[in-house]
Design a protein around this nucleic acid. Structure first.
Lengths: 240, 240
DNA sequence: TAGATTGTTAATCGATTAACAATC
DNA sequence: TAGATTGTTAATCGATTAACAATC
């Protein structure tokens, strides 16, 4: 059986750079979104100028980004939309579904758990944990009578075992700030390789474990700052 | 009454730069968090080295950032923690509470609405809207029998009026992507000046209105990319 | 005073933008 | 072929880091 365990066939041929610049990486899912819409709408080709227009990104930037990951645009035509979409999905890992655990069954955690789109992006939250006895055992899909899915919130002390047993690589952290590092220690010890952190703390993890912080206060603060600036300017009168 | 409408007294004396570099602005709330904890813990002074250590930020970076907004650190001692905290709160606008509206009473919207900390950061969500008749009229604090607060989800067609009446400047958007631009149009038309957008779309707004996108897929995609990279390296064997 | 840590200048690094020859 | 749009090189811009004189 020489075909078992063979390398995944890639339906497109992305370049595999040692390291993608972070700003470029963060724009790729945005390109993906627009190109998916274009393919859906039956557009065959899309140009860097058009992508830039729809996303408010400089068109040279778009070309540079896409040439890093793909570089198969057709001069005079643009990018073949379906192929480019496929390529972005390969690069971003949307095509191989990876299991994830989520810890913290509060409102935000459950909102993420129920987010319908995540499967599209290659992640499947297979278990939800909490340390609160009042939450443990709670049904995750209560209203859904016809669902065959009777998942419940699991106790935190089962977290490590499950990660190990299922060889889970991705952990979502939606616990309060003071509990986050403890949860992350368990995750890391059990072999987690990437952490999506919604707790407002700087987590300490060993090299090789990646943390992505989604600190909502940062976004809020930038908006507040701009509002305050505007008020300031106003209150100083029009001569400024 | 010459003292009415007088300029807000600032208990610290932040510099007021024309424009703060964006990366610096985004680090300020993070400094704020750590310094708040330090003040809480009774620390009088904190150094750039200590801040950098706790936040995994280069200490020269910390000094540069703080010198842009404040620049009153004491050589040999560090920064007076309580004063610096006050300064950051002034700069970030945490001290003047501004009203906000939230549109989209789904799980994410309600999670944000209930987030306990937002008042600390100067924002108060005074109303929640939705276009779904099943949600309109729903109590926002159902479990809370003793609350004097009987707020309900309001119909979307009251949005513009309320913004105008209360002169609200900040709008939170947690509706599905295909409804976001419509909601934003109403907001902008009614005078909103800053939008905190959780819908995965590029919004079109006039100059002078600021949009902050919190596109969760971006974070997810960067994690997926790194996991995929690691797998790739592994599957290519140790000689790579 | 001696030791520590700041604010700032200069050097480095990396990302964005402009321009254009190559090419569909 | 003529027109359009790519990928890439060079120029610009801005942010990070290193180093150190000033100073608490």
């Amino acid at each position: 059986m020489p075909n078992e365990g063979v390398k995944l066939v890639r339906r497109c041929d992305p370049k595999a750079p040692v390291e993608l610049p972070r700003p470029t990486l963060e724009r790729l899912p945005v390109y993906h979104r627009v190109i998916a819409a274009a393919v859906e709408a039956g557009e065959d080709y899309i140009s860097s100028a058009e992508l830039g227009r729809r996303l408010q990104i400089d068109e040279a930037q778009v070309r540079r980004d896409l040439s890093i990951v793909w570089g198969k645009g057709k001069p005079g035509l643009g990018y073949e939309a379906a192929e480019l979409l496929q390529c972005l999905e390969d690069v971003l890992g949307f095509n191989n579904l990876s299991d994830a655990v989520l810890v913290g069954a509060g409102r935000l955690g459950l909102a993420l758990y129920h987010y319908p789109g995540f499967q599209t992006y290659g992640i499947d939250i297979v278990a939800v944990f909490d340390s609160d006895p009042a939450k443990i055992g709670t049904l995750l899909n209560p209203g859904d009578k016809y669902s065959s899915d009777h998942q419940v919130v699991l106790p935190l002390d089962k977290l490590g075992d499950l990660i190990r047993r299922m060889r889970i690589q991705l952990g979502v952290v939606t616990v309060p700030a003071d509990q986050a590092q403890g949860v992350v220690n368990i995750m890391v010890e059990a072999g987690i390789k990437a952490i999506w952190n919604f707790a407002p703390v700087t987590l300490v993890v060993p090299a090789g474990v990646m943390v992505r912080n989604e600190d909502l206060v940062v976004g809020l603060a930038t908006l507040q700052y701009h509002l305050a600036q505007k008020m300031d300017i106003k209150s100083r009168g029009p001569e400024h």
